[in-house]
Write a protein that binds this DNA or RNA. Structure first.
Lengths: 214, 214, 214, 214
DNA sequence: ATCTAACCGAGACGGTACGTCGCGTCTTCTA
DNA sequence: TAGAAGACGCGACGTACCGTCTCGGTTAGAT
């Protein structure tokens, strides 16, 4: 963690940090992650290169912090509006698991289709595939928190007897969450509400015939 | 389509092509995709850089062809051995869908854990996330063919009445295939046979309680 | 001299040779000697590269032959016109050495100012400075023949008693020929008829005061 | 004028500049100007290529500066030794023009035959023939200053009545200076003291018979 | 009149160097 | 004294040509 004589973070320039985040997010959208360079971020942010190297170890690390900051800002804005933002701490529990999951999944589809998030999120995912350290941070700080919302909701359903008790919620949620993510990342198929619905249905009820209800 | 007077492929050096494939695969394993350079591939292959640039547009394209060639060679070797190789044209249909899927899924787990395939496959996936052209080729030539094996097997099961007739097989297979791939790529959890089994079971029978069999 | 199994010159394609000369001369004028390439000459001449490498060892050698050929053609054209061309076998001997030298020097000034000859001649001179082999050929085939015309004329003047008998004509001619060439090549001063005249006068009569004629 | 944001010369590395000069001069002697490469200079100097490209536009420009620096160093060394170095600010005026010119001409012959100066000077001359910008700089900074020494001495002789008053010194000096340079550059004849002497004699007194002194 | 050796156009090949871009480090100057 | 500015050594980029090497096709001169 510690660099060579770690910099004094109390003296850190807040103004520079923000400018770097803004520049990184803007540039990754404009030129793509592959052509994103520290030099360009520094130039755009009106910042010396050293100021970036002092606080981050790679362009991926900068972008990850920038994206996390973006999320926090969005969350703060959402909670200020007292409304229901994209980033929530809970999945609604209406008692109808299928409906609740479909709602969240449809919202996720919409989010994935939002250009603002596409470039940086995709870049971080790609970097994470190749770079285990960043990958771990990506999973821990971005991916897993989102998935844990599903874990929580599935546990509630189990308590209510709507999901089999011996089902592992952490694995179960992957049945619908992973296909959606994969389709988006790999562009291996269209991302629609109908698709999201089907994933939920198949996962909840299986694809094999059920005995007729008595 | 044609670049600046496309090269004459009939005069292409087979020897160079093989050497480039070998070098690319070896190097991506040794130094990783991020540090893989065209220059190093050329040097290792004993080839001029231009010979690479003449036939491929990027290191990703080289690696994709190298990996595809690796697959073809493995397939050829497998068919010569008349045995059961990793790359097959069909998923066995024993009549027991669950067993057949588990068998393939466990084999896939083993393959994902094989270091030989890990580095290049992961690299291609990552590159595909950022580079739509290469991503499309990756999906079309590597991913989709594998998934279509599942589509075929699910269709057979539908014909046999073991899978609900209104289920879309292309979507259904994602319930087990995507989570496995995502866990591997994102390193978001352990890849075990038990995990593979659970994915198949959840997907086939759902996670909600079924009425007691009549 | 002999290459590796020297090519059979009787089978040589005259058409290709001409095309190569034309291309070389045209290109040296268009892009300059530094950017003149064998590949470009071959392409412009519609000729395979090997056809050039078969008969010449460098771009300088090609250009030298091309320029010599240009001279021969000009000479042939001049003699056909039965008139007085730039390339002559003799300097006129009118009995007046000063007048005859000035005439030739003025013609040389005009030739040096002719764009057609400038680029290739300058290129050959420059190449000759660095490449002793080509330099020797340049001197022997281009420079010395021109200078020998002066030697001949000065000898005639010596025989007539117009030049001191112990003067070395080969050295004497350099007094006017070298300054002219140097000014042109180095662009170290303007090239005019007046300048040429002065060189001849200074060389013939010296720059120091002469005793009054008796 | 300014290139793309001209570099800040106050922060220039003196150490690198010297190393580049040394490397350039050494290499031009070892491999010749044609095979002199920026890459080799950088490698030999232990310097990045960019550091060369930042301050010079071509290998010729580097070599010119290196050679000028060499001259300055020699001049500085000479003046420290309080002795008579090769590079002087004046041609001695002993009252005997012929003797003084011969002295300088013989020294020049020796210098031309000094291997240390041969390669770079010849290279710069050749480059100057092809490249007008560099040629101009070559003439202005190297050639002309040397020739002006002759101009000065001839003027003194004119004042003393030893040279005709209507003679143009700038032209007169070429009668002996240019032939020497040309013989050296073109290797069109041997460079000896005797040859130098004859040039001076011919130029001073002409090659035509003088009336007998009264 | 046919054969056959070569020259020919074409251009792929292993290389070298080009001039540029960006890396991560280091230094200098400024607020 | 942190930060902007940017020069530095370095490494790779993608391109241009080098000179060598096949590869058909044409085109003699000898059979």
């Amino acid at each position: 963690m510690a660099q060579k004589t770690a910099p004094d973070s109390t003296r850190r320039s807040e103004r520079s940090r923000r400018a770097i985040y803004d520049a990184a997010l803007a540039l990754v959208g404009e030129v793509g992650y592959a052509k994103l360079t520290i030099e360009a971020i520094a130039a755009r942010a009106g910042v010396g290169k050293q100021t970036i190297y002092r606080w981050w170890s790679s362009k991926g690390a900068v972008l990850l912090d920038a994206f996390l900051d973006l999320g926090e800002q969005a969350a703060r804005a959402a909670s200020e509006n007292a409304g229901r933002g994209e980033i929530q701490t809970e999945i609604t529990n209406s008692g109808d698991l299928e409906a609740d999951l479909k709602f969240v999944m449809r919202a996720t589809v919409d989010e994935f289709n939002d250009a603002k998030y596409d470039a940086p999120y995709r870049a971080l995912a790609a970097e994470g595939l190749l770079n285990p350290e960043l990958g771990e941070e990506f999973v821990e700080k971005l991916l897993e928190p989102q998935l844990q919302l599903f874990v929580k909701r599935v546990r509630q359903a189990q308590d209510a007897g709507h999901v089999l008790p011996d089902v592992d919620p952490r694995i179960a949620l992957e049945l619908w969450a992973s296909p959606l993510a994969q389709r988006w990342l790999m562009r291996s198929g269209p991302l629609t509400h109908a698709y999201a619905d089907k994933l939920v249905e198949y996962a909840l009820y299986g694809i094999t015939p059920r005995p007729a209800a008595s």
